[in-house]
Amino acid sequence: MRVLVVEDNAALAAQLRAALAEARFAVDHAPDGEEALFLGETEPYDAVVLDLGLPRLDGLSVLRRWRAAGRAMPVLILTARAAWTEKVEGLNAGADDYLAKPFAMGELVARLQALIRRSHGLASAAIALDGPWGQVRLDIAAGSVTRDGAPVRLTALEFKLLAYLAHRRGGIVSKTELTEHLYEQDFDRDSNTLEVMVGRLRRKLGERLIETVRGQGYRLPAAAA
């Protein structure tokens, strides 16, 4: 999952980056409204944490322009302005959630994950990937994976890949889409790494868990009806 953090306070931005990276998000940071606008319009983010008081272009304007341009990614407004009139304005401008500063980092991460889940139509953070390979349980909120009840150790990147595929389960995910959603903006992307990671995940969780659709990408089996 790749998120954009729009925050002009450097200290808070660093804290956010660290906390979100620890929660296995790929994090991009925009320190002002204009850069935020550009990144949000060009990069496929899974969610945005948006401060409202920004230099060059205020957060509400950025949000309105994203929405006007058809960008539908979930946006969480994070601001010191906590009055209800401001909250109403932010939500009605197209935000999906609103969190007032000061805030608990845990709450922010939980809300962000909930927003992403909701945007993918997932009801719960715990995802069951059962099949001939056994009972695989993925808990996105907790960042844990078990196979037949036993915990499985995954690297951060492996977990990100699995989580992204789980959010899009049943659908074909191309390698390009995967790289776009797993890596940060200036990361050196190498699609061979993806293949290696998919191979490792298959070894750890079951060869047939991740299906390769030739020439198109990968797919996790759809949830049992």
């Binding site: 209800w84 909250k87 109403v88 932010g90 939500l91 009605n92 935000a95 999906d96 959630d97 609103y98 909701r118």
Partner: peptide, 12 residues
């Protein structure tokens, strides 16, 4: 107005 905003949060 508040209801419109809250529906974004609790619509489901």
């Amino acid at each position: 107005e508040i209801a419109a905003a809250l529906r974004r949060l609790y619509a489901d």
